[in-house]
Simulated scan of single mutants.
Amino acid sequence: MTPLEELLAERIRRYGPIPFADFMRECLYHPVYGYYSKTELQRLADYYTSVDVHPIFGRLLARKFAEMWEQLERPKEFLLVEAGAGVGRLARHILDFCEATLPDFFAALRYVAVELSASRRKQAAERLERHGRANHLRITQEIPEHVPAGCVFSNELMDALAVHRVVMTAGSFEEVLVGCDHGRFVDVLGPVSTCAINDYFATQGITLHEGQHAEAGLEACDWIAEVGRRIERGFVLTIDYGHRARELFDERHMRGTLLAYQQHRVSEDFYRSPGEQDLTAHVNFTALENWGKRSGLKTTEFTSQTAFLLALGQPNEFADVYDPGQTETDQIRARLQLKTLIHPEGMGERFHVLLQRK
């Protein structure tokens, strides 16, 4: 039994079954035992992201951010806020490229790397020390209260925000709570723990099939609405895997989309080794759009990662993929890594990009 497992079991014994959202939040973000409090090596042992494939991902994003700066008529300071910055790998790719290739934009760029984990903030500070000393970067635990002009962006963050689990039973929702039976976590059906769950589905016009399981991403809704309130003028860019609501809750997803990842293996054993495996659910982009509207965010683009990266890389024929002095073998390897990011059978069509503006 993991230390977190003992803490959660004791909580359930004392107070009764808890919403899965509470369980998931503790499994991922407990300050001592949560999955994202672990070292970066733990994550790499379980899965990898677009950032891990090649620096071209960050370089193309940098070009997109420079476009945003131009669209905002070149403000003196452009606040670029990365939510879920981890150990600063993507931040370094973006900052290094802007410094070398986009000097005018770099002069205005103020990067804020937001990360909950204290250990990962420390790793990021070490990796990004040079940019911090030059006042182009600061690392924090919270998104700034006010973003006068800039962009808040995330890459594979929304899928790791806690979700409630529900099932349609006799025409109404029951919530799948987490109970504990003889030391094992089990599903327990009960009334929904908050009326926000009913509002979540009603707002999107979603009716589940009888017996269908689904996730309600209330935390993601609260997150996007709050971010929209903090932006005075600028953008929110979300990159993640998921769908719009009509596809996300169709008959192909009768069991929901929640999955557990450990050692590059995927399962539906959500209760195994709390704090030692990643838990994710597909992102509902319709919900991000709807709740974003409540704080003034308007959708300007929704597309696949393939189309998004192609539009950014094609003008210079993806010259940004190469580093100075590379051998022909290195260049071939770089092109293959690029294909992983944009090929429909790789990450290209599994990931989507939502751009909102205020």
Rank of each mutant, 00 (worst) to 15 (best):
C195H: 11
I56E: 05
R333I: 14
D52Q: 08
G325S: 14
T327W: 12
A214I: 02
Y36M: 04
N290T: 13
I206T: 08
H352R: 13
R229Q: 05
G34L: 06
A311C: 03
R63C: 10
E67N: 14
N284Q: 05
M68I: 08
P191I: 04
L297E: 06
C27L: 09
S273P: 00
R252S: 02
L109M: 15
E226V: 02
R74W: 06
G313C: 09
T280W: 11
A311P: 02
G217C: 13
R272L: 15
H253G: 02
A62N: 09
E156K: 03
A245N: 10
Q277L: 12
A66F: 00
Y47R: 08
R294M: 10
L95I: 00
V186L: 12
F106S: 00
A160D: 13
A134Y: 00
P19I: 03
H136V: 00
M1V: 14
E156A: 11
Y47A: 14
A287N: 12
D96H: 09
A134H: 07
R43T: 04
A113P: 07
V236L: 04
D159H: 13
K122N: 07
L237N: 02
W291S: 12
A107T: 00
Q123R: 10
A311T: 03
P148F: 14
D52C: 03
D181V: 12
L312A: 07
R229L: 05
V176L: 13
E247R: 12
L237I: 01
V186H: 10
D323V: 05
D104Y: 00
T340V: 13
H131A: 03
W223Y: 12
V87Q: 05
L218H: 07
F285T: 01
T280F: 02
R11T: 13
M24L: 05
A287Q: 04
L297D: 07
P17L: 04
R92L: 13
E328W: 14
R127N: 04
R252Y: 02
E5G: 15
M1I: 08
V178K: 07
P324D: 14
A118C: 07
Y35S: 05
F78C: 01
E174K: 13
L95F: 00
L102H: 00
R184T: 15
G217Y: 01
D104M: 00
R265S: 07
F351E: 09
C27N: 06
C195P: 13
T194S: 15
M1S: 11
L312D: 01
G217L: 03
T238H: 02
R252D: 12
G346P: 06
G58T: 08
V178G: 10
F78I: 01
R110L: 15
A62E: 11
G256R: 07
T140D: 14
D222C: 02
V186R: 14
E276N: 09
Q314D: 07
E67T: 10
N290F: 08
R165Q: 14
A107V: 00
I94H: 00
S119E: 11
T299V: 15
D269I: 08
F270N: 06
L189K: 14
E126P: 00
T207N: 08
R272P: 05
T203Q: 10
A245I: 05
A281P: 03
R350M: 14
S304T: 15
L4P: 08
Y35H: 06
E345R: 15
F351R: 06
G84I: 06
A118E: 15
V87G: 05
D222N: 13
F105H: 00
V166H: 05
L157S: 08
D96G: 05
T303G: 05
L288E: 04
L355G: 04
